[in-house]
Structures are given as C-alpha cells and as structure tokens.
C-alpha cells in the first residue's frame, strides 16, 4: 500500500476523468451511428468473429489511451484547479448522455410517416 504523501499527481486524475468522458461520448455516438447507418456498422466490423463492436471497442480504447496521455502531458507540473471543474462537468455530461442515448427505446426511436 502506498505511503501517504503530501504531493497529489492531479494531472493523472484529471486525465482519467477527461478520458472517461471522451470514451463515453464515443461509445454512445458509435452505438447510435452503427444502429442507424449500415455502412458505419460494416466499417466497424474489424473482427468478423466478434462483429461491429470489435471496431467500436478498438476505437474507444485507443481514444481513452490517447486522451489520457495528452491531458496528463499537457497538465504535467501545472496547477489543475482551473481545469478541474470543467473536466468534472464534461465527465458528468458524458455519463448522462451515455445513460440516456443508449437506452434501447431512445437509440431505436424512429418516426414513420
């Protein structure tokens, strides 16, 4: 177990929140696009044995790693106070958007004339 330290590596926490927000936004967008547009679903079919979610998982994983690395590097050694609240609300908005827009009856909603 780590020993208590007075130093907080906040850029890592900030990067984790921001990367989670970006990944959740990508997840609901990918889900919605793949559901509505057949070419998108086909383009995401990286591994035929798994199906279109293989592409979505790969893109989301890559986006998480990339966002985490970029934010952690940008804020390394800097005061994160000003960015903390922004990253937090971005994360909350991503959670809410994901929760609402992946509900089957919302994502599958359609209007017929």
């Amino acid at each position: 177990m780590p020993t208590p330290s007075s130093r907080i590596h906040e850029p890592l926490a900030l990067a984790a929140l921001f990367a989670a927000g970006v990944s959740l936004h990508l997840l609901w967008m990918g889900n919605l696009l793949a559901l509505r547009l057949v070419p998108v679903g086909e383009a995401l079919d990286f591994l035929p044995s798994i199906g279109p979610m293989s592409g979505l998982y790969a893109i989301v994983a890559a986006a998480y790693v990339l966002t985490f690395a970029v934010v952690a590097v940008v804020f390394r050694g800097r005061d994160c106070t000003s960015a903390r609240e922004g990253a937090f609300w971005f994360f909350v908005s991503a959670v809410i958007a994901f929760a609402v827009l992946t509900l089957p009856f919302v994502a599958g909603f359609g209007v017929t004339a």
Partner: peptide
C-alpha cells in the same frame, strides 16, 4: 453465433470498465 449489430448490452461492458 456473431452479433450482427451493436446494442445496449455491448456498450454497457466497456462503459463499466472505463468508469
């Protein structure tokens, strides 16, 4: 079997892992 489409179930797993 092979899922032909992404549905809510398949996005819940990565979301939980990410969170």
């Amino acid at each position: 079997l092979r899922p032909s489409a992404i549905d809510a179930r398949w996005v819940l797993f990565p979301a939980a892992i990410i969170l």
